[in-house]
Design a binder for these strands. Structure first.
Length: 200
DNA sequence: TCACTAACCTATTCACGCT
DNA sequence: AGCGTGAATAGGTTAGTGA
């Protein structure tokens, strides 16, 4: 993505997870599952994870990457199979019959407090930071990663909605204001929560 | 060195609970 | 019904690894 503020360069020390090396047997199982259904639901991903002894999040990434590779291949060889219904396999009805998603995670105020604090410190945490956070708030690392993704995206969306006709200093100030507003909103929620706890 | 691919990213959409 | 937000998606980039 040709993003001018390339995140991974401006923020150092956020290392990646070490690269998973799937064995031949593991790949066989994954490929077979992919051929059966390239959009497995949470239960299937869990089952696969158990079967090949890896984390469910690795299964998710593997399916994402394989779907992407398959889309590329389809585009680069658009010849034959024009009337074969085989290549139009996942649309409409297939999407409707997609398996169930993972249950929505709901975060407590204190968990959010920790996450927001970490986000303000560094919106692009490496694997070590994510794992530490996950341990601290008792939530899987994969959820922490998704939470950061969602927050970054939503913050970028907010920024884009802002008019672009000011000089960068003003814009930065506005970004900060927006951010502060968002954080304050969250903190108000937390205060309400804790006030209830202590019976205020 | 280069191809392959896991890990990671943004942007967008889906979906669900809450108000 | 609309909103906030977690989950999933497409599609692109980065970087580790083996030939």
């Amino acid at each position: 993505m040709a993003q001018d503020n390339s995140p991974n360069k401006t923020i150092t020390m956020n290392q990646r997870r070490s690269r998973t090396k799937f064995t031949e047997d593991q790949l066989k199982i994954l490929i077979k599952a992919f051929d059966q259904n390239p959009y497995p639901g949470y239960a299937t991903k869990q089952r696969l994870a158990l079967e090949i002894n890896t984390d469910e999040s690795r299964i998710q990434i593997w399916f994402q990457n394989r779907r992407a590779r398959h889309q590329c291949q389809k585009k680069s060889e658009p010849d034959e199979d024009l009337e074969s219904s085989q290549d139009q396999d996942h649309s409409e009805e297939e999407i409707q019959s997609r398996e169930e998603r993972r249950c929505r995670t709901s975060y407590t105020s204190s968990q959010l407090h920790t996450l927001i604090g970490a986000f303000m410190n560094n919106p692009y945490p490496g694997i070590d930071t994510r794992e530490q956070l996950a341990k601290e708030i008792g939530i899987p690392e994969s959820r922490v990663q998704i939470w950061f993704q969602n927050w970054r995206s939503r913050f970028h969306v907010q920024r884009k909605r802002e008019p672009d006709d000011q000089d960068s200093e003003q814009r930065q100030d506005q970004e900060q204001d927006l951010w502060d507003e968002r954080v304050q909103e969250r903190e108000r929620e937390m205060f309400t929560f804790f006030a209830k706890l202590i019976g205020a």
